[in-house]
């Protein structure tokens, strides 16, 4: 396993987690994209040593990379693409309703905050 890939996974995860702790939904969306990349890289790394493109009848099986994690990664990419779009729609709606895209406090949190303040 290449150290560079490992560092990349670690870096992407760190920045991703930092971003999703933000209040603004647009930052959260960026954070999830980075985390998604980290997960996909991790999946590919889990497949073992790199090799040639695993295309049937063109690459000798012993030279080709492990195709299973690639298939899994592809599925994961499609799913995270769809979810990013949904999050963007949510951010847009929040902006229309309240003028910003900040995640608001839970009702319960607000109630408790009011009671302790009073």
């Amino acid at each position: 396993m290449s150290v560079a890939v490992l560092i990349a996974i670690g870096g992407l995860t760190t920045v991703g987690i930092y971003l999703i702790t933000a209040r603004s939904l647009s930052r959260i969306i960026l954070g999830f994209s980075l985390l998604g990349h980290a997960a996909v890289l991790a999946l590919l790394t889990a497949g073992g040593p790199p090799g040639a493109a695993p295309i049937a009848d063109q690459t000798a099986p012993e030279l080709s990379a492990n195709p299973v994690p690639q298939a899994l990664a592809l599925t994961a990419i499609v799913i995270s693409f769809g979810l990013t779009l949904f999050l963007l729609a949510l951010a847009r709606r929040q902006q229309t309703l309240s003028g910003d895209d900040l995640v608001e406090d839970d009702l319960e949190d607000r109630r408790i905050a009011e009671e302790t303040a009073a």
């Binding site: 999830f32 997960a39 991790a42 999946l43």
Partner: peptide, 12 residues
């Protein structure tokens, strides 16, 4: 996302 990372660990 954690699930996906977990899958990578399990596969590895």
């Amino acid at each position: 996302t954690l699930f996906l990372l977990g899958l990578a660990f399990v596969y590895a």
